[in-house]
Simulated assay, not measured.
Amino acid sequence: MTKLTTNDSGEFVRSGNRFDDRITAGGASGWPVEPGRYRLVVSLACPWASRAVLVRRLLGLEGAISMGIADPIQDERSWRFTLDPDGRDPVLGIHYLAEAYAAADPSYDGGVSVPAIVDVPSGRLVTNDYPQLTLDLSTEWREHHRPGAPDLYPLEWRDEIDELNELIFMDVNNGVYKAGFASSQEAYERAHDALFARLDWLSERLATRRYLVGDHLTEADVRLFTTLVRFDPVYHGHFKCNRHKLAELPVLWAYARDLYQTPGFAGTVNFDHIKRHYYQVLDQLNPSRIVPAGPDLSGWQEPHHREVLGGTPFGEDGTPPPDVSDLG
C-alpha cells in the first residue's frame, strides 16, 4: 500500500526500495539466473508491478519465472493472496507477501510493495527494486527470452532511454502521485503543472515518431504506458490530474491506443483491479470507497493510425508474443 508521506511543504515523498539484490546471469550477486527458481509477485492494479508483468510477457519469460497475483484490495498486512484457493499463493504457500519480506529480514517493519521477486526454495524476498527489476529481465535473463523477443534496452540507446525514464518518472509516473497525495495547495499545483508540462513535451516528441526511442518498443514506452493506461480511469479524477483527460490529448491518446493494441499489452491490463484498488484502498482520498462507473473504455480499440510514422513494435526481425494466459 502506498504510504501518504509528505514533507513540510506538503509534497508527497515516495519511500525507497529496501530490498535491492539483483538476479544476475553470472550469479555474482548471490542470486543466479535460474529458470523455475523465482516467483514474481504482482498486483495488476499497480503501475510499477504492471511494468514487470508486461516486460515478462513481451520477452516470453512465462516459462522461466512464474507469477503470483495479489488481490487488488489490501488489508492492514498489505498484499494478500485471497484470489487463490485457501487464500494462499499456490507456489510459495503464504497468505501474505509480507511473509516473504519477513523471511528475508525478520526485523523489517516497513512497507510491503510489488513487484517483488521471491526465491521459491527459501521463501525469501530477493528484490522489490522495480526500476532495476525490468532492466534485469531484459539483460540478465536474455538467454531465456523467446525467439523474436524485442530488445527493450538496446545498448546503443541506453543513455537516451535512461534520461527519458528519469524525466518520465519524476513528472509523470510519480508526478500523478505527487499531485494526488499533496497535502498543500502549492504542492499540488506544482505537481499538476509539472505533469502536464511533461505530457505536452511528450506529445511534441511523439508527434513525429511512433516510439519514444528508436524505431521499436523499449523500456521507456513500457514505463510511460502503465501510467497512461490508468490516467482517465483513476488519475484524472481521483488524483486531481484534471487539466485534460488522456482522451483529450490527441497525440498521447493515439500513442497509448497503439501500444494497447500491440500484442502483449492489453492482456496485462485489468481495469477492474485498477479501479477497485485505487478507489477502495486509498480511503484517505475516497472515504466512501465508491468506485466510479466510468469512463467508457471502448475507445481503447479505436484505430490509432500511428503506423504511418514507421517503425515496428518488436524490431525488424522481432515477432509478437504468443497468446498465453496466466493472469487469472
Rank of each mutant, 00 (worst) to 15 (best):
V229C: 13
L224V: 03
P292I: 02
Q284A: 12
Y255M: 12
A220V: 11
D215K: 12
P295I: 04
V229H: 03
V213F: 05
A247H: 07
T227L: 01
A254T: 06
T226V: 15
D296E: 09
G267R: 09
L217H: 05
E219P: 13
F239T: 04
L259D: 08
C241R: 06
V213Y: 01
H238K: 15
D283P: 00
G264H: 00
N270F: 01
D221Q: 11
Y255G: 14
N270C: 14
D221L: 13
D232S: 08
F231S: 07
Y235G: 01
P292K: 07
D272L: 09
K275R: 15
L228M: 14
H277W: 11
R257S: 11
L217M: 09
P295H: 08
G214W: 13
F231N: 04
R257I: 05
L212T: 11
T226S: 04
H244Q: 14
F225P: 03
H236I: 01
R257V: 03
V234K: 10
L282W: 01
F271A: 09
H273W: 02
L252P: 11
L217S: 14
G267T: 12
V281G: 03
R223A: 11
I290E: 14
L285V: 05
G214K: 08
A293N: 11
L285G: 08
H273P: 07
G267M: 06
L228T: 12
K245Y: 13
L217F: 09
Y279A: 05
A247P: 02
I274Y: 04
P295R: 03
V234E: 02
H244W: 11
G214R: 11
K275Q: 15
K240D: 09
Y255S: 06
L224A: 10
F239E: 05
A266G: 02
A266S: 15
V234Q: 08
V269E: 03
R289L: 05
V234R: 09
F265T: 02
H238T: 05
H277D: 05
V213S: 14
F231C: 01
L285R: 10
T218I: 07
G267A: 10
L252G: 11
G267I: 02
D272K: 14
A256M: 14
I274V: 15
A256V: 04
R230P: 04
R276K: 13
F225C: 06
A293W: 00
Y278L: 06
V291S: 01
L228S: 08
L252I: 10
G264E: 00
L228N: 02
V291P: 02
L282H: 15
A293S: 11
Y278V: 05
V222Y: 03
D258L: 08
K245D: 00
D232R: 07
D283R: 00
K275V: 03
N270S: 14
Y255H: 12
S288L: 04
D232E: 06
D283Y: 00
F265D: 01
L217R: 09
Q284W: 10
D215E: 15
A247D: 09
D272G: 12
L228F: 10
E248L: 09
Y278K: 07
L252M: 08
D296W: 02
F271P: 07
L249M: 15
Y235P: 09
